[in-house]
Design a binder for these strands. Structure first.
Length: 905
RNA sequence: GCCGGUGUGAUGGAAUUGGUAGACGUAGUGGACUCAAAAUCCACCGCCAGCGAUGGCGUACCGGUUCGAGUCCGGUCACCGGCACCA
């Protein structure tokens, strides 16, 4: 017991006052423990335990045994099951459920899970009825690919992976409610995913449209975006092109405005709100009609109607309907058609390449021109793929003087650039794009002299009066492509009848089960593997009863994850996706933590579905999640980086390549740009992935949990350093050792520790709420250091254990039991300790003394002292006196309990 | 290119939001204990000068506001993440 020994042994290395005689019980125990003991302070019961068992096992911090013991107990007693109904207030904490991949859990998973586990455990101790569930997002491509490669059914792969994940999650001691696990591939679950699809269809929010898909020219199959690597097929290396295919779409754009507006009332971190807003991309502008010389109206969308006088040409997208419509008038039809064909052939990769180059391409439509409605000037029309068919109207008016893309295009094709907003540099050299009040309209008739801001409403009103335009809002957000030509997904419950068209399955036919197929390989014609199951495909029309065919595409992985949090509220319900009572009680999710990478897809999709469910009266709240926070990634050491090589290796390379610079350049050449950085993402190919199992095996789950929370700011990316894990293990060892000897009884906190304990409770409570887990742990470490310095009584130790319990639950329960606190139930079932604000302030404070803003020294003063008193103490200080000697005091600035600044001349 | 974020010791990171820069860890150095090692305990640990008391410098860089700036403002550079011709 070091804390006790310190008193007799002294802090500066005095010899121990009492030498133990060889052969005594105390001597043997000391040898076994490998540290000093004092038998007088070791309870007789413990001595007997040691002797009767012939080992010190009950005294050592045997984390493996302890962790297994408590995990078993929690599971058997359903310690963390949420109560169906309760007088307590509710708290619903949610983490993103994992995709159960074959590799199992990696250290990226426990970071957010441990964080929310700590919050959930703290909330229980705060008296909440807590729902903290987990499940598996198990449909998806990797499982399907694994199944194809290894000839195992994806359902079996999924089952095995889920079993493995479950075991790993349990090993880390998360307080999940294991009775509420959901699995998106379970028919009892996806029945309701299909049901929601039918509701979307009935509301007119699901429709068929022709969309381009990635098509591998060699495998003759549709690829997901992630299967296309640098423009070629991941599997065979053949080029990937875009091919038109009829797909189910969900009309998320109908909810664009509400998805923006309703963010205001939510407690999401700003980054998330901003990213969603930018993704939805609302922009206000105007639609303007340009007459073509054919007599057709060309409608363009512009955010800068004020620059209308500067429009010197038009551009329409190669896919625009007018291109075909005007075919017989075009004198350069062949050239135009070639350009259209080339644009269609382009893969996304090539388009991106071109964008990076900023090299504009296009063809002028010879034989058709347009008229600028403000000044009657005839201007040429081009087709170019920098104008997207999918945004706005697929046609633009080009104002090269004030748009960088138009400017680049005009320069390349030698088109006229007319300045209509003054205030920038020469528009012949670069476009002037400022939208604020710095620019004044020129060369613009009735708009001359106005600022850009003033001109926009004036021109918009004029367009409306003329009947050739109006204000228009556009969104970047596009509708959600909902079909996948894949096996391992939810079947879409729709039937095609040649007579009646698309018909929804009736709800009592759900779930529409995914049939077993022989092969999950994609088909040669790009259809889903389900299309080969003729028995399944051929059915009868729900409308006329005639022969009909099922939809063979399946849903994307986003489907199941768009509503899973609702299922947790009532996971075994077979009458509804969840009962009304459960939805009313648990909605909304109070706190949802997840990765930033899900901000624009999963998070937005699920908000959209939830709003649809709200509109049809299924869920009680407009929004699914009240609060959203986000964690940073765990990074790994880069084994190819110079900084992470062994000293010998560094020396060898330095010698070989002429200095460190040469060696680094060599590594970059060999391994790519990534070799520049000592810290990189963890990835299998780099071999720097850390497996939580290994850490748990070597140090225990509690140490793993402590370290992953201690390694840095939760919201920021942080590198994993295995050697630093020890620090947390040492801390837990020190906590454990606190209870090995005798502890002073004490009902209240010991005088020496009282203030530190109150401060720690305040700090830890606040930090958990703010997700500053690293500083909360630092505060606990500091408290334990205090305990070692001051000694500790039972009440002190009890407070420490309660605070530590959310972080390191296993060791706490074990110590709690040893110390006899267990009669009141487990530590995790106790109330969170309270602090007394008045006891968090010290009677005496340290005050910094500055002279003319320069730090000179610190002084001690009674708390809340008045300025005069502090000034007197400061002036009496030798250093201060010396600094102000011979000068006169002009002014003092005093910050209570903190600082006094003497200004002298 | 645009949007967002970050830049602090050898190292991961703290800093009451404008008030003692480097808490708490890791690594390192010295010491105690040990036959020895491990473990544990004690002390030191930003840089420069000095035996020392002490003095000077220091939060990517340049400048500003302020009694006082890691924190606020202007500019520059570097890195990370997201989007990628959105009219």
């Amino acid at each position: 017991m070091q804390g006790v020994w310190k008193k007799s042994a002294g802090s500066n290395g005095e010899k121990r006052t009492k030498a133990l005689q060889k052969g005594t019980i105390a001597y043997i125990i000391e040898k076994l423990l490998m540290r000093p003991v004092e038998t007088a302070r070791l309870p007789a019961r413990r001595c007997m335990t040691i002797l009767s068992m012939g080992s010190v096992i009950t005294l050592k911090y045997e984390f493996t045994t302890i962790e297994k013991k408590w995990q078993k107990k929690w599971l058997e007693e359903k310690t963390y099951a949420a109560e169906e109904k309760s007088a307590k207030p509710k708290f619903y904490g949610l983490v993103e459920f994992p995709y159960p991949s074959g590799q199992g859990l990696h250290v990226g998973h426990p970071r957010p899970y441990t964080a929310m586990d700590i919050v959930a455990r703290k909330k229980r101790m705060d008296g909440y009825n807590v729902l903290f569930p987990i499940g598996f997002d198990a449909f998806g491509l990797p499982t399907e690919n694994y199944a194809i490669k290894n000839h195992v059914h994806p359902a079996k792969v999924t089952r095995d992976n889920i079993a493995h994940f479950t075991e790993q999650l349990k090993m880390l001691g998360f307080s999940f409610d294991w009775d509420r696990v959901v699995d998106t591939t379970d028919p009892a679950y996806y029945k309701w995913t299909q049901w929601i699809f039918l509701q979307l269809y009935k509301k007119g929010l699901a429709y068929k449209a022709t969309m381009p898909v990635n098509w591998c020219t060699s495998c003759k199959c549709v690829l997901a975006n992630e299967e296309v690597v640098e423009g070629v097929c991941e599997r065979c290396g053949a080029p990937v092109i875009r091919k038109e295919k009829s797909q189910w779409m969900l009309k998320i754009t109908a909810y664009a405005q509400r998805l923006i507006d309703d963010l205001d009332d939510l407690d999401f971190i700003e980054r998330v709100k901003l990213q969603q807003k930018n993704w939805i991309g609302r922009s206000t502008g105007a639609e303007v009609v340009f007459k073509a010389t054919t007599g057709d109206d060309i409608v363009v969308f512009t955010t800068r109607p004020d620059t209308l006088f500067g429009a010197t040409y038009m551009v329409i997208s190669p896919e625009h309907a007018f291109v075909k419509q005007w075919a017989d008038r075009l004198t350069n039809l062949k050239e135009v058609e070639e350009y259209v064909a080339a644009a269609a052939r382009k893969s996304d990769f090539e388009r991106t390449e071109l964008a990076a180059d900023k090299e504009k391409t296009g063809v002028m439509l010879q034989g058709v021109r347009a008229v600028n409605p403000v000044n009657g000037r005839e201007i040429p029309i081009f087709i170019s793929d920098y104008v997207l068919a999918t945004y706005g109207t697929g046609a633009i008016m080009a104002v090269p003087a004030h748009d960088t893309r138009d400017w680049a295009f005009a320069k390349k094709f030698g088109l006229e650039i007319i300045e209509v907003v003054s205030g920038g540099e020469d528009v012949q050299k670069a476009a002037f794009t400022a939208k604020d009040d710095t620019g004044i309209l020129v060369n613009s008739g009735f708009l001359n002299g106005l600022t850009v801001k003033e001109a926009i409403p004036v021109i918009t009103r004029w367009l409306e009066e003329q009947g050739i335009g109006h204000e228009q809002v556009n969104y970047k957000l596009r509708d959600w492509v909902f079909s996948r030509q894949r096996y391992w997904g939810e079947p879409i419950p729709m039937v095609w009848c040649d007579k009646c068209g698309w018909q929804p399955l009736s709800e009592d036919q759900l779930p529409l089960l995914l049939p077993d197929v022989e092969s999950y390989e994609p088909t040669d014609d790009g259809e889903s593997p389900l299309s080969k199951m003729t028995d399944w495909v051929n059915t009868t029309c729900p409308c006329c009863g005639g022969p009909a065919r099922r939809e063979t595409d399946t849903m994307p992985q986003w489907a199941g994850s768009s509503w899973y949090f609702l299922r947790y509220m009532d996971p075994h319900n077979d009458k509804a996706l969840a009962s009304k009572e459960a939805l009313d009680y648990w909605s909304p999710v109070d706190w949802y933590n997840g990765g930033m990478e899900h901000t624009t897809l999963h998070l937005l999709y699920s908000r959209f579905w939830h709003k649809v469910l709200y509109d049809i009266g299924v869920v009680p709240t407009k929004e699914p999640y009240q609060k959203r926070t986000s964690h940073g990634m765990i990074l790994g050491l880069n084994p190819h980086s110079f900084d992470n090589l062994s000293t010998e290796e560094q020396e060898r390379l330095t010698a070989q390549y002429g200095g460190e610079k040469g060696a680094r350049a060599h590594l970059v050449e060999q391994y790519g740009e990534m070799a520049d950085h000592p810290i990189v993402k963890m990835s299998k190919s780099l071999g720097n992935v850390v497996n939580p199992d290994d850490v748990v095996k070597e140090y225990g789950a509690d140490t793993m949990r402590m370290y992953i929370m201690f390694l840095g700011d939760f919201e920021k990316a942080a590198p994993w350093q295995t050697n630093a894990v020890k620090g947390c293990k040492r801390f837990l060892d020190r906590v454990w050792n606190l209870h090995e000897g005798q502890i002073a009884p004490g009902e209240g906190y010991s005088a020496a520790n009282e203030s530190a304990i109150h401060k720690a409770i305040k700090k830890v409570s606040d930090d958990i709420e703010a997700m500053k887990f690293n500083t909360a742990i630092a505060a606990l470490m500091a408290l334990v250091n205090d305990f070692y310095a001051n000694g500790v009584n039972r009440a002190d130790l009890k407070a420490l254990l309660l605070m530590l319990s959310p972080f390191a639950p296993h060791i706490v329960e074990e110590m709690w039991e040893h110390l006899g606190f267990g009669v009141a139930g487990m530590a995790c079932q106790q109330s969170w300790p309270v602090y007394d604000e008045s006891k968090t302030v010290d009677a005496e404070v340290t005050i910094a003394v500055q002279v003319c803003g320069k730090m000179k020294t610190t002084i001690q003063a009674a708390a809340d002292s008045e300025e005069e008193a502090v000034l007197a103490i400061a002036q009496a200080d030798g250093k201060v006196a010396k600094a102000i000697e011979g000068k006169s005091l002009v002014k003092t600035i005093y910050v209570k309990n903190r600082l006094i600044n003497l200004i002298v001349k």
